[in-house]
Nucleic acid binder design. Structure first.
Lengths: 208, 208
DNA sequence: AGCGATTCTTAAACTAGATTAAGGGTAGTT
DNA sequence: AACTACCCTTAATCTAGTTTAAGAATCGCT
């Protein structure tokens, strides 16, 4: 698309890198040296809607940072039903951490819900950065800590709240997602059928 | 209890420290210098059965490593019902990561299910170790990665499996816990009532 | 040994959520 | 304009899991 020349010999644009650096500024900002190292190790890609970043039995070789667009990570059970484990949009990361660190084939799928623009870093490069730059290590520790706490809250909700409560929580905490996802995808994320979510929504509308 | 003299001026016994060092040997083993630093920063405690390590509105100031014993972390909903988020026994860690890193009051409780023997490290000490010893940082990143993947699998089960399937999974994956916990505690962990778990168990027994 | 507290089970009535089936709405494609 | 694919809703029936209540079993403590 953009034909403007970049400083470096790989194809990563400055504006994409800036999104990533801006993101780290919200955690533990990177030093110039660390930025340079990241710059040479990150690959830029565009993914079409409904295309897959990861499929069952693939090895998950990358951490993916989303510049624009939206993804879902899901699993498929024996009956063929899909279950959404996670959504991720702008300024978020998505990866199958289990496969990424164990090196074993993934059980999951990562699909683009919208045309998306991403940066990816490979496992070898990330491990290199971990061992040479403690600030990178600490940033990724913090990223996982945040995701862990979110996941724990979600689990708590799943064992203690009704579908309506979970749905309201989702709408309040992910407003940037709730208006761009079909409600059938949200139902799968909440762990219910689309039919039942529809019933819940009807109930909420009649109350208000 | 033990009156044998220790090398250092705090009260941490060598055998407790060895449990911790052994644990790290299974991840990324610590260097002597790092062990020394940990030694001076870790506190040893014994906790009686039914006593609390953390209660609602407390700040969670420690990462706790369990040498012997068993804990549960739970939340209490509006109706007063408890919901077990996590169990932890020997060679495992327990903390409310949300409160620990945010510095905000915890919404959770951590209770000893058995008389327990633990090591604790304070936030300030851990942050000091993170910034001076990348190996410590990496170890704790790996600890969280492992816990994240476990949690994600559990969530997936909660949105996609029956109670019987979840119960069987629990028995298979936590045999060291399943035989020492009352099944009412397991029911709370699985997100069902004790009465229903009893029914499920009866069904399983009649099948086999 | 005996007492209180906790734990486990059973069963009947109830409710949240699944399933099945059908119809209508909308968007994208040719 | 018509076709396909997807998405949303409704409603009837069914089932997994809850609630309430009560009794039996087990554990820990003095």
């Amino acid at each position: 698309m953009n034909t403007a020349p970049d400083k470096k010999n790989n194809s990563v644009t400055e504006s994409s890198l800036n999104s990533l650096f801006q993101y780290f500024n919200g955690l533990l900002p990177l030093k110039e040296k660390e930025r340079e190292e990241l710059r040479t190790r990150v690959k830029e890609r565009k993914i079409r809607r409904k295309h897959y970043l990861l499929q069952h039995d693939d090895l998950c070789k990358h951490y993916t940072f989303i510049i624009t667009g939206c993804f879902r990570m899901f699993s498929v059970d024996q009956k063929g039903t899909e279950h959404n484990l996670q959504f991720a949009a702008e300024n978020d990361w998505i990866t199958d951490m289990g496969s990424f660190y164990s090196g074993k084939p993934s059980q999951l799928y990562i699909e683009a819900i919208e045309p998306s623009h991403i940066l990816q870093i490979e496992k070898g490069d990330l491990l290199f950065l971990y061992s040479h730059f403690s600030r990178v290590n600490r940033n990724f520790r913090v990223i996982i800590e945040i995701k862990f706490v979110e996941l724990q809250n979600r689990l708590l909700q799943n064992i203690s709240s009704t579908v309506e409560e979970r749905y309201i929580y989702f709408l309040e905490h992910y407003p940037h997602l709730s208006h761009r996802l079909p409600s059938t995808q949200i139902a799968s994320y909440l762990g219910v059928t689309p039919e039942f979510l529809s019933k819940v929504r009807k109930g909420m509308a009649s109350k208000a």
